[in-house]
C-alpha cells in the first residue's frame, strides 16, 4: 500500500494525528495531495457544515467552543476549521482562534485546526474544501468553519457551509446598516452575541428591521433568517441557537435546498481548482521575452494572454 493510501486509511479510522497530517498535505498542496483528496472524497459522504462569519472580536471562536459543547452533549463528533488572515507583508500569521476554544483539549471526539488565508481575500483559504473533505472522511458529524472577521469580504463562507451564522455584538449599532449589503444575504441565522452587555434588545430589533427590508427582495427558499441573542460568556441562548441550527438543517432537507447548496459548493470547489491549475500552468509560459515584447508594444496583454492559453494544450 502506498504511503498516501495508508494515510487515507488512518484518517478514515479517526486517527487525529493522521487527520492533522492529511490537512497539511491538502492545504500545502504537497506532492500526493491530489491522490489523497480523491481517495478520501470517493469513500466518504457529506456532513452538515456550519459557517461562522462576523466582524473581528464579535465572539465567533468563543461561540464555537459553546457549540462544540452543545453537540458533544448529543454525542456528536465535531471538527473545527478556524481561519485567520495571513499578513500580506510577511506571509506569516497569528492564528488566535484556538486560544478561545480551550475546554475541549482532552476530548478525542473534537478536532480543532487553525488555518491561515495565505494571501486569499474573501475570508477563506483556497484549499478549505479539501480540508473539509478530510474531516468528512474522518467521521466528524458536525463541521464548523470560522472565517476571518473582515466584514464585507466574507461572502465566500456561503460557498463552503450549509448553514451560515452571522455573529454581531450589541455595540455595533449603526454599523448594522452598513453591513447589510452582501452579508445580509448570506446569513441563515443572525446572532447578537455578548447579550450580557448593554444594548442587546436594540441590536436585535435593528437587525430584524434591516432583515425585513432585505427579505422582500430575496426570500431565500422560504427561510426567514431569524435573529437570536446569545452570550458565549455565560452560555445564555446557546441551546436555542443549537435548536435553530437543527431547524435550518431540517429546512434544507425538506425544501430540497440541501442538494442545491451542495452543488453550489462543489461548483465553487471545482472552479477554484481550475483557476489555480490553469493560471499556474499558463503563467509558467510567461517569459522575460514576452514581457519585453509588451514593453515595446509589439503585442498587447490580451493577445499575449490568448496565445499563452492556446499554447497550453501540450502542457
Amino acid at each position: 500500500m502506498s504511503d498516501i493510501r495508508r494515510l487515507a486509511r488512518r484518517v478514515e479510522g479517526g486517527d487525529l494525528s493522521a487527520v492533522a497530517r492529511a490537512i497539511s498535505f491538502v492545504v500545502d498542496e504537497r506532492p500526493g495531495s491530489e491522490e489523497l483528496s480523491s481517495e478520501l472524497y470517493r469513500r466518504s459522504s457529506s456532513v452538515h457544515k456550519v459557517g461562522l462569519a462576523g466582524p473581528p472580536g464579535s465572539g465567533k471562536s468563543t461561540l464555537t467552543g459553546r457549540l462544540i459543547s452543545y453537540w458533544r452533549g448529543q454525542g456528536l463528533k465535531v471538527g473545527v476549521l478556524a481561519v485567520d488572515p495571513s499578513s500580506p507583508v510577511s506571509g506569516g500569521a497569528f492564528l488566535g482562534d484556538r486560544l478561545r476554544i480551550q475546554d475541549h483539549a482532552g476530548d478525542p471526539c473534537v478536532y480543532i485546526r487553525s488555518l491561515a488565508t495565505r494571501g486569499r481575500v474573501g475570508g477563506l483559504t483556497p484549499t478549505i474544501f479539501g480540508a473539509i473533505h478530510v474531516l468528512e472522511a474522518a467521521g466528524f458529524q458536525k463541521i464548523l468553519v470560522e472565517t476571518v472577521g473582515v466584514g464585507q469580504d466574507e461572502v465566500e463562507v456561503a460557498h463552503a457551509a450549509d448553514t451560515v451564522l452571522y455573529v454581531v455584538t450589541p455595540g455595533l449599532g449603526d454599523e448594522i446598516q452598513a453591513l447589510k449589503a452582501g452579508i445580509m444575504e448570506i446569513g441563515d441565522i443572525f446572532v447578537v452575541n455578548k447579550a450580557d452587555l448593554q444594548g442587546k434588545d436594540k441590536a436585535v430589533a435593528d437587525l430584524r428591521r434591516a432583515l425585513a427590508i432585505g427579505a422582500e427582495a430575496s426570500p431565500a427558499g422560504g427561510w426567514a433568517a431569524p435573529v437570536l441573542a446569545t452570550s458565549a460568556l455565560t452560555g445564555e441562548g446557546i441551546a436555542a441557537l443549537g435548536e435553530m441550527i437543527e431547524r435550518h438543517q431540517d429546512h434544507l432537507d425538506s425544501s430540497g435546498q440541501r442538494s442545491r447548496r451542495l452543488k453550489d459548493q462543489l461548483r465553487a470547489e471545482v472552479s477554484l481548482y481550475l483557476a489555480r491549475r490553469i493560471s499556474r500552468s499558463v503563467e509558467k509560459r510567461l517569459t522575460e521575452r514576452h514581457l519585453s515584447a509588451l514593453v515595446e508594444r509589439k503585442t498587447d496583454p490580451v493577445t499575449l494572454g490568448h496565445e499563452l492559453l492556446d499554447a497550453r494544450g501540450g502542457a
Binding site: 487525529l16 494525528s17 487527520v19 492533522a20 497530517r21 490537512i23 497539511s24 495571513s86 499578513s87 507583508v89 510577511s90 506571509g91 506569516g92 500569521a93 497569528f94 492564528l95 488566535g96 484556538r98 486560544l99 480551550q102 483539549a105 482532552g106 478536532y111 480543532i112 485546526r113 487553525s114 491561515a116
Partner: peptide, 30 residues
C-alpha cells in the same frame, strides 16, 4: 509577534496549559 512578522504561522495556546494539552494541540495543528 516576532515569529509572525518573520513569516511563520503561529498558534498560541495561552497560559495554564498542561503538557498533555500542549502535546495534543501540537498534534492537531501539525
Amino acid at each position: 509577534r516576532a515569529l509572525r512578522d518573520a513569516g511563520f504561522e503561529v498558534i498560541y495556546t495561552g497560559i495554564r496549559q498542561t503538557p498533555e494539552m500542549i502535546a495534543r494541540a501540537a498534534i492537531q495543528e501539525d
